[in-house]
């Protein structure tokens, strides 16, 4: 069984979902019963899970829905020119 310090340290080093399954089981058991670190570390796990879901959401979504900003036309023109130059030099 883990101590509170070991649970906190494991959650601080790695995201909860990246820990091995056996470790996650013990951590989950610990935070469910622990009167000292249970509430706090449950919230740490909540944040880890939210971030993991956000990344999944970003990877699955066809477009980044964070905002409706677009590149300015001037930027696009400059980028196209740089790409043209870079492609030409790559082909030489």
């Amino acid at each position: 069984m883990f101590t509170c310090k070991q649970v906190s340290s494991a959650l601080n080093k790695k995201n909860y979902q990246d820990l091995p399954t056996w470790k996650r089981v013990f951590i989950k058991m610990h935070v469910k019963c622990c009167l000292f670190c249970g509430k706090y570390n449950t919230q740490v796990i909540d944040t880890h899970e939210m971030c993991r879901e956000l990344i999944k959401n970003e990877e699955n979504s066809n477009d980044s829905e964070c905002c409706d900003v677009c590149l300015e036309e001037d930027n696009k023109t400059a980028m196209k020119e740089k790409i043209r130059q870079s492609t030409e030099s790559a082909q030489l």
């Binding site: 477009d63 980044s64 964070c66 905002c67 900003v69 590149l71 696009k76 980028m79 043209r84």
Partner: peptide
Amino acid sequence: PSQWVDLYGDYLYRYAMS
């Protein structure tokens, strides 16, 4: 690559802005 800006420019820009 000549089509990247039109096809992916806005998508990557939004991701970077996030």
